[in-house]
Amino acid sequence: MTTRTMELLVGIFAAAAIAAVLFLALQVANTSDTTRGDTYTLIAKFDNIGGLKVRSPVKVGGVVVGRVSAIRLEGEYYEPVVEMKISSRYNRFPETSTASVLTSGIIGEQYIGLEPGFIDEYVQILGDGGEVINTNSAMVLENLIGQFLFSQGDN
């Protein structure tokens, strides 16, 4: 085995590794991940977050604009607070926006649907650390069934 052949084979080895990285980066991973790069934080309080987890996506009309970065309980009544990191590209959410815990499909993962609200001269734009006041909590199946039965009983 001459040194030159060995160098060539090591070169092929390195090239194969680079090809693998490119494949993983371009074809496998989510490269349009908006949570990379600059982000700012929004928070939202819910009554119930259901199956929401850290790293769950935050979507506007189905497009991912950020991810949940922390979930904790706050205040005297232990209210669930969700902290979201939103891409700085989307930095014009007014304080009238609505955040809802939604589910993709019947058994799919849960995410936060963010709906931008109206803007007029009295409405401010949410900055870093701003709170989305209007929230809709997660649907809990048991509650839904309970409500359904209750309403049936009324009839």
Binding site: A25, Q27, V28, A29, N30, T31, D33, R55
Partner: peptide, 15 residues
């Protein structure tokens, strides 16, 4: 196959 994969694989956390 690919798009669902891309949606759930993260460069940072998985790879």
């Amino acid at each position: 196959f690919w798009s669902v994969m891309q949606a759930s694989v993260s460069w940072q956390d998985d790879i």
